[in-house]
């Protein structure tokens, strides 16, 4: 029996976490293996109390265990303590595959744990297959221009799944055989201290990663003022605003709006790419969008190769008119 351990070190169990469990489930089915879930830190307490709020149901099911690791020191940013706690769990549980969601805190803990375990480690994973007892791992490389298939020659292997690449589990049963794991954390391990948290709000109040409609701008927007137009359109559409790396690096919009290889991964019904050329590193962040609309002055921009609908036009000309059209539609819809 193969054991897959999903490690959730984030304070909340959201879509990315449920996707990680979904990825583990699919692999376990192929392997006839079991899925264990380890909740570390504040999420352990909240899920133990109210699993349904995290979209999970804890119910006795054969061979699926849930580990809760809570400790007063496991709060906020303290990667070294999380690594230490997980090391203690892994002294007793011996998984073949250790799966993390693609969150920044997970991406910080996973390689350090892998190093201590002497385990192979792959980030940004979009595919997991069982093949003759081995795990075949797929990840995009060269900014998405190729996909690499990697085989871990010996267990364990540590995998961080890319957000929006796997289907999340919804309200499903997670191992009801629950264990509270006691960990001892040495205060002298703590080499970092969180001093301040700066929340960057989305422009429209809709979280980028959850939005069904995303209006995104790139270098072609030319400055922060242009983004006010995109925000207005997004507000009328009930969506969120994203950006390319070029627009974030220019300081026109916050870095947390960046979409792509090293930004957020989104999977909306509608993705409107405005003044974005469509570099592969941007496009990998929107590969699961249902409908991509590109607005660009250059008919040869690569974004049109991945777009469903394309308009060759300067954004300054079309966006204000588009806002009026959407407004009309919305007002008519309400009447």
């Amino acid at each position: 029996m193969r054991v897959i351990l999903v490690v959730l070190p984030t304070p909340e169990v959201g879509r990315s976490e449920r996707e990680a469990i979904g990825a583990a489930r699919a692999l376990a089915t192929a392997f006839a293996g079991e899925v264990n879930v380890a909740l570390v830190g504040p999420a352990a307490e909240s899920v133990a109390e109210r699993p349904e709020r995290a979209g999970l149901t804890l119910e006795a099911s054969a061979n699926a265990r849930t580990f809760f690791i809570a400790h007063p020191m496991l709060r906020g940013y303290a990667p070294e303590l999380y690594v230490s706690a997980l090391e203690q769990l892994l002294a007793t549980v011996r998984p073949d595959v250790i799966l993390f969601p693609g969150r920044t805190i997970a991406l910080e803990i996973a390689p350090r744990l892998a190093y201590r375990l002497g385990a192979a480690m792959v980030t940004d994973v979009i595919g997991l297959q069982a093949e003759d007892g081995a795990v075949v791992i797929t990840k995009p490389v060269y900014g998405g221009k190729a996909h690499a298939m990697l085989v871990a020659s010996r267990p364990p292997v540590v995998v961080c799944v890319r957000p929006r690449a796997f289907d999340p589990i919804e309200g499903e049963i997670v191992g009801g055989d629950t264990t509270w794991v006691e960990v001892a954390l040495d205060p002298s391990l703590e080499r970092t201290r969180l001093l301040e948290r700066i929340q960057e709000e989305s422009a429209t109040g809709t979280a980028l990663e959850e939005a069904q409609i995303v209006v995104s701008g790139g270098r072609g927007i030319g400055g922060p003022e242009g983004f006010r137009l995109l925000e207005e359109l997004a507000r009328w559409l009930g969506g969120a605003v994203g950006a390319s790396r070029a627009a974030c690096d220019a300081g026109w919009v916050p870095a947390s709006w960046q979409i792509g290889q090293t930004g957020k991964k989104v999977a909306p019904d509608l993705y409107l790419a405005v003044g974005i050329s469509g570099a592969s590193q941007h496009v990998v962040g929107i590969s699961r969008a249902k409908c991509i609309v590109a607005i660009n002055t250059d008919p040869h921009a690569p974004i049109f190769k991945v777009a469903d609908l394309g308009i060759v036009e300067a954004y300054e000309n079309i966006i204000p008119v588009l806002i009026e059209e959407v407004k009309r539609l919305r007002v008519a819809g309400k009447a």
Binding site: T104, R193, L194, E196, R197, I198, Q199, E200, P254
Partner: peptide, 8 residues
């Protein structure tokens, strides 16, 4: 961080 920034 996923939500913004942290001063550490």
């Amino acid at each position: 961080s996923d939500e913004g920034w942290e001063i550490v």
